[in-house]
Computed example of a mutant assay.
Amino acid sequence: MRRLLCLAILWFGAAWACPEDAVDLELSYPVPPYTEVAEFLRAKLRARGIPLAEPPSPCPRFFIALGQKAGEAIRRRDPNTPIVAALVLDEAAIQKLAPATGVWLMHPLEVQWQALRAWLPQLTQLTVLYDPRFAAQLDSLERLARRDRIRLHAVAVDSPKQLATVAERLPSVGAVFILGDGRVFNLTAAQALLLFARARRGCGRAVGAVGGGGGHVRPRLGV
């Protein structure tokens, strides 16, 4: 992802480079993974001689938005300046910020499943927390699980607040897989999963969590 993001930024930088503040970098939240990606990009921009506006410029040549919240905030202020986006869920999220380009987090479900099987080759049971709006993806996931003889336990989650209650009732499983977007599985949801995983570790039952969209789950849970 970082390589693709750098290519997008360098393309904009070559097109609009100027001797004064040219790029405005904005984060959705001042926490990992946003801060980690920001530091990586600052180093790459300095190495390429692309000036970074610090503090932010009132009229940058283009924006770098890390996360959907940052991109939407930029668009409310400035409807025309191009955006390079990262740490957003999918291509549709970037299209909403047009004119924009960037790299999104979501991969096809088959790719996510292959990554899960590579990470946990001995997995036999999997709990799936899913937003009901993603029921079609759940059907696809169930087909993949049947093919690989993995037992699924699917739990619908309608809101971030509900997740805390759901986590307390989850069975002992090898991992938790998330199907949804930021409407349900936001930072609050990640923190609830973190508490759940820590509690299970305390009982001698370590539980991992994986998901295709979340910039929060992996860094927050350390998996």
Rank of each mutant, 00 (worst) to 15 (best):
W16Y: 15
W16V: 12
A17K: 14
A17H: 13
C18W: 10
D21K: 10
A22T: 13
A22S: 13
E26S: 15
P30W: 02
P30S: 06
V31F: 14
P33Y: 04
T35D: 01
E36L: 11
K44W: 07
A47N: 04
I50Y: 11
L52R: 08
L52H: 08
P56W: 05
F62E: 05
F62H: 04
F62W: 11
I64Y: 01
I64F: 01
G67C: 05
K69F: 09
A70P: 07
A70R: 04
E72F: 06
R76A: 15
D78C: 08
P79C: 07
P82A: 11
I83G: 07
V84C: 14
V88D: 10
E91D: 15
A92D: 12
Q95E: 14
Q95Y: 07
Q95W: 12
P99Y: 12
A100K: 04
G102S: 11
V103Q: 06
W104D: 00
W104I: 01
L105I: 00
L105D: 01
M106H: 03
P108Y: 06
Q112W: 06
Q114Y: 11
R117F: 08
L120Y: 04
L120C: 04
L120P: 05
P121V: 08
P121S: 09
P121C: 08
Q122D: 14
L123W: 00
T127P: 05
T127S: 15
V128S: 02
L129S: 00
